[in-house]
Structure formats: C-alpha cells, structure tokens
C-alpha cells in the first residue's frame, strides 16, 4: 500500500507536482493518466525515492520513503520511462547484478531468475549483450529487473512507449498476469491502455489530480456526453432532422459528406434512461436510409480533460 499525501515538487518556480494525494491499495492496478508534462514521471520518481519531494509524504507499506528509504524501497520494483540498463552487460549478468543490489539470497537466485525470465520471455536472450537487444526486449529486461526481489509494488512508467503493436499487447498481457500478485502503478498517456489493465485511474493535469476514479465510474462520468458515429446513405439534412426528433438526443451534426454518403456525429444526453441506439436504427430504417456503419466513439484524452477540467 502506498499513501501519498500533499505531494509537492518545485522545479525553480514551476511546480511540477502540486499537492497530490492519493492511495494505492494492495493488489490493485492503478493507472496514471495525463498528457506529457502533467507530472506523472515526477510523481513516480518521488514514490520510488529517486527524487525528494519539496513537501508532502510518501509511505510505502507504512515506511516513509525519506525516513526509512531502505525498507520502503525494498517493496518497490521500478521501471523508469528509460529502462536503466547497462549496455555492456549480458542479460543474465545484469539480472544477477540486480539480485546483488536487492540483496536476494544466493539460494533463491536461480529459481527466481528463471521464473522471471520465463515470465517476461527473455530466457532465449539471457546470454546476449543488452546493448544488442531490440527495444521490446530491452523493455522486458527492464520489467524483469523491476521484478527481482519479489517486490509487492511495481511502478511502471510508460512501459509500452515506443513499442510496436504486437509488443504492446505482450506487455499488457504481462502486466495483467503480474497484477495477480502485485500492486501496480502504471502510467500512460493512452487511455485505452489504462482502460485495458487498470482498476482505478488517477488523472493528472498540470501537476494536480484532476480525477481519481475506478474505470466504470470514470466512463459513467464520461458517458454524460457519449458520442456515436454513423455512416448513412441518403439525404443528409433529412437524416439529421429525423434523428433530432428522437428523445434524449442533444446534438446531431454532419461531420463529412461524400456524394450520398454522410458521416453523422450524434451527441447523446446522459439523462436518457434508455439506450437511444435502437430508436436511431428504427427511425432510419423506417425512412429507408441504409445504415453502413454505427459505432460509439471513444472519448479522446483531450475530451476527458475537457470534460473533467472544463
């Protein structure tokens, strides 16, 4: 468990982190969401003890990171945005070094290392030089490094950045499997990633907590302005007016048109008790306009911020 109270970090006159408080519960995956420069990395650096806060406290399982750093750090595995790897070491040399650093007992080392390497799928490259590995492998070695010493808490800063889609999925899977035994704090600026793995989300903006919520709650809050995108063939204006007539529709607009094909954006009011999608389908069917595509639009990060902060 991590308790964060009134965390502040100044850089010169700028406040990179401004009075943040939240708690990471045992066994939970907490997402850290925010645009670049929102203070995600700074916050993580403070939690892991890399930086000292200007004021405020961080307690890891009851140990203050400034007062009992060794005890606090023992429980944390950290993967910074730039994986801290020695390019002149082989994977196994590096992981052994990490075992030394984390004071893993000699007897426990072999089984632990083989388990971790299997888990993050780096057994095949264990004898290769880290400097010669691909970005995806390096990231995995970074995660393996964080896992050594069996910390209860994992802190992963943008673990998927710069990876190709296949690797992103692999890493997500890995995080999911790790979440069974660890508390995880994971930061990202990609909403879908957070949605895919997190129980709870902390949204940071300009160094402040903009929102803390579970994923369902958050989406409920976001769904106050849920959006659909519709591609229909027919008369644009007529379609718009037909849909507008339906209940609980806030706004309808034509986003794009190409001959007879119209892309129509529908903004639905949250007060509606029923799902408006059925009504839309039937209304258009009745009017004889064939519907070619109908999907709900994920809110973009910008929209979340707009909705939360605006």
């Amino acid at each position: 468990m991590i308790e964060i109270n009134n965390l502040v970090k100044h850089y010169g006159t700028k406040k990179a982190v401004n009075d943040i408080s939240f708690t990471v519960n045992d066994g939970e995956v907490l997402g850290f969401l925010g645009p670049n420069g929102a203070g995600k990395t700074t916050t993580m650096n403070i939690i892991t003890g890399y930086l000292s806060s200007t004021s405020g406290t961080v307690k890891v399982n009851g140990h203050d990171i400034l007062e009992e750093p060794e005890l606090a750090k023992k429980d944390i595995g950290y993967l910074p945005e730039q994986p801290p790897l020695y390019n002149d070491m082989t994977v196994i040399e590096f992981l052994n070094f990490m075992c030394d650093l984390k004071k893993v007992r000699k007897a426990d080392r072999k089984p632990m290392l083989s388990e971790i390497m299997d888990m993050v799928k780096i057994s095949s490259v264990s004898d290769r030089l880290i400097g010669n590995l691909s970005k995806g492998y390096k990231q995995r070695v970074g995660i393996a490094q964080a896992l050594i010493g069996d910390p209860k808490i994992l802190i992963l800063d943008e673990p998927t950045v710069g990876l190709d889609p296949g690797q992103v999925i692999e890493i997500r899977k890995l995080v999911k499997s790790l979440s069974k035994n660890h508390s995880i704090v994971i930061s990202s600026h990609i909403l879908s990633e957070i949605q895919a793995v997190c129980d709870r989300v902390v949204i940071l903006n300009h160094g402040k907590v903009a929102a803390i919520d579970t994923i369902p709650d958050l989406s409920r809050r976001l769904s106050g302005t849920s959006k659909f995108l519709l591609t229909v063939r027919g008369d644009g204006d007529d379609i718009v007016s037909k849909i507008k007539m339906l209940t609980s529709i806030q706004d309808v607009s034509i986003r794009r048109s190409e001959g007879e094909y119209y892309e129509i954006e529908i903004l639905v009011s949250n007060s509606a008790k029923t799902d408006p999608r059925e009504a839309i389908f039937f209304a258009l069917a009745k009017a004889g306009y064939p519907m070619l595509e109908f999907r709900s639009l994920d809110p973009t990060l910008e929209e979340i911020f707009l909705s939360i902060t605006g």
């Binding site: 892991t48 003890g49 890399y50 750093p69 060794e70 005890l71 750090k73 023992k74 944390i76 950290y78 910074p80 730039q82 801290p84 790897l85 020695y86 390019n87 990490m98 650093l101 984390k102 004071k103 490094q145």
Partner: peptide
C-alpha cells in the same frame, strides 16, 4: 545512460 536510477531506487 540513466542507470543511476538503479542506485536511487534500490535498497
């Protein structure tokens, strides 16, 4: 190389 993080964040 950024490896100094290891020294700050390990016990």
């Amino acid at each position: 190389k950024g490896t100094e993080v290891l020294y700050y964040t390990n016990p």
